[in-house]
C-alpha cells in the first residue's frame, strides 16, 4: 500500500452511525488489528506451524520415546553401531541414524528441542522482564537514574560474552541453570536499550502530560500509559531474542560449558558429532538442521509480527 493511501485512510473513520452495530461497539484495537493482519500472513502461519510442531515434539518427547520403544540414552551396541564401531545411517529403526555411542539421533534431537526451547524461552523471558523494567526506569526517570542504568547496559553489551561465560563456568561448573543465567544476563541490556529509546519518545507525547495533569503518579504513568506502547516492539524483539538464546545455548553446549552430556542438546550433539562428520553425515546434519529450522522459523515469525504491528514500514517499501 502506498504511503499516500495510508495517510488518506488515517484521519477519516466512518461516521459512527454507518457501521454494523455489533462491530461498532466492540472496538477493534491495535492488538486486534495486528492479530487480524497476522492471520492473513502466510509466512507467519507457516513459521508458527513449524514452531508448534517442534514445541509439541519437545513437550511430548517421553511419549514419542515410549512409542518408538527407546529413550535418548539407550545405547544399541549391536544394532546401532557397525562392527567397526561406526554409527549406522538412517533406517526404519533409526530415522536419523545413530551416534558414536549407538544412541538414536532422532529421539536425541527431540529431547534436544526440550532444552533448546526451555533455555530459549526462559532466558529471553528473563531478559525481557529485566530489560523492560530497566529500560522503562532509565527512559522515564532520566537524569542520574538514566546515566547509571545506561552505562550499566553499555558495560554489559561491551563484555566479551564467551570469555565471560568460560571464566564463570570454570569457577562454578557447567549446568542448565548457569546456562540460562548467562544468556539472560547478556541479553537484557539490548532489550533495555530498545525500550529506553521507545520510552524517551513516548514520554514526550501529550497523553503523558494529560495523565500528569490529572494527577497520575510516576508508577501509573510508567505502567499504564507508557508500557502498553512499548509492548509491541518488545514482543517483536522477544521473538527475535528466542532464536538468539537458542543459538547461545548451542554455542555454550558445543564448547562444553553449557548443558553437559549425557543430557542431549543440539549444541553438545554437534560437538560430539564433529569427529565423525566424514563417516556419519546424519550425526551432524540432523541436530544442525533442527537448530537452523527453529531459528529461521522464529526469525520469520518475528518479522511477520513486526509487519503486523506496523503495516506501513518494512517489506512493501
Amino acid at each position: 500500500m502506498s504511503q499516500l493511501a495510508a495517510e488518506l485512510l488515517e484521519p477519516i473513520t466512518p461516521p459512527s452511525g454507518q457501521v454494523v452495530a455489533s462491530e461498532a461497539i466492540q472496538g477493534r484495537g491495535p492488538w486486534q488489528l495486528a492479530w487480524a493482519r497476522l492471520r492473513r500472513d502466510k509466512v507467519a502461519i507457516g513459521s508458527s506451524l513449524v514452531i508448534a510442531v517442534i514445541a509439541l515434539a519437545a513437550i511430548f518427547a517421553p511419549l514419542i520415546a515410549r512409542l518408538i520403544g527407546h529413550g535418548p540414552d539407550t545405547q544399541f551396541q549391536s544394532t546401532g553401531l557397525s562392527p567397526q564401531g561406526i554409527p549406522v545411517g538412517p533406517s526404519t529403526s533409526f530415522f536419523f541414524g545413530t551416534d558414536d555411542l549407538g544412541r538414536d539421533v532422532f529421539i536425541r534431537v527431540i529431547y534436544g528441542a526440550r532444552i533448546s526451547l526451555l533455555v530459549g524461552v526462559i532466558a529471553s523471558g528473563m531478559a525481557i522482564i529485566v530489560g523492560v523494567v530497566v529500560g522503562l526506569a532509565a527512559g522515564y526517570l532520566g537524569r542520574a537514574a538514566d546515566t547509571v542504568l545506561s552505562r550499566l547496559m553499555d558495560v554489559i553489551l561491551s563484555l566479551p560474552f564467551l570469555v565471560f561465560a568460560i571464566a564463570l563456568v570454570s569457577v562454578v561448573g557447567p549446568s542448565l541453570t548457569i546456562t540460562v543465567a548467562v544468556i539472560a544476563f547478556f541479553s537484557w541490556a539490548s532489550v533495555g536499550r530498545i525500550v529506553r529509546g521507545q520510552v524517551l519518545s513516548i514520554k514526550e507525547k501529550e497523553f503523558v502530560e494529560a495523565a500528569r495533569s490529572l494527577g497520575a503518579g510516576d508508577l501509573r504513568i510508567m505502567f499504564v500509559e507508557i508500557l502498553p506502547n512499548v509492548l509491541a516492539p518488545t514482543i517483536v524483539y522477544a521473538t527475535l531474542l528466542i532464536p538468539l538464546a537458542i543459538v547461545f545455548e548451542a554455542t555454550l553446549s558445543f564448547l562444553g560449558i553449557g548443558v553437559i552430556p549425557p543430557t542431549p542438546t543440539w549444541g553438545n550433539m554437534l560437538s560430539e558429532a564433529m569427529p565423525f562428520y566424514r563417516v556419519a553425515w546424519w550425526f551432524v546434519a540432523f541436530p544442525g538442521l533442527a537448530l537452523v529450522v527453529t531459528t529461521v522459523a522464529f526469525n520469520l515469525l518475528g518479522d511477520s509480527i513486526r509487519d503486523a504491528f506496523d503495516p506501513r514500514g518494512s517489506r512493501s517499501s
Binding site: 472496538g27 484495537g29 491495535p30 507525547k205 501529550e206 497523553f207 502530560e209 494529560a210 499504564v224 500509559e225 502498553p228 506502547n229 509492548l231
Partner: peptide, 10 residues
C-alpha cells in the same frame, strides 16, 4: 492524535 493513548480504550 498525540493527546490520547493509542493503546487504551476511550
Amino acid at each position: 492524535y498525540g493527546s490520547l493513548n493509542p493503546r487504551r480504550r476511550v
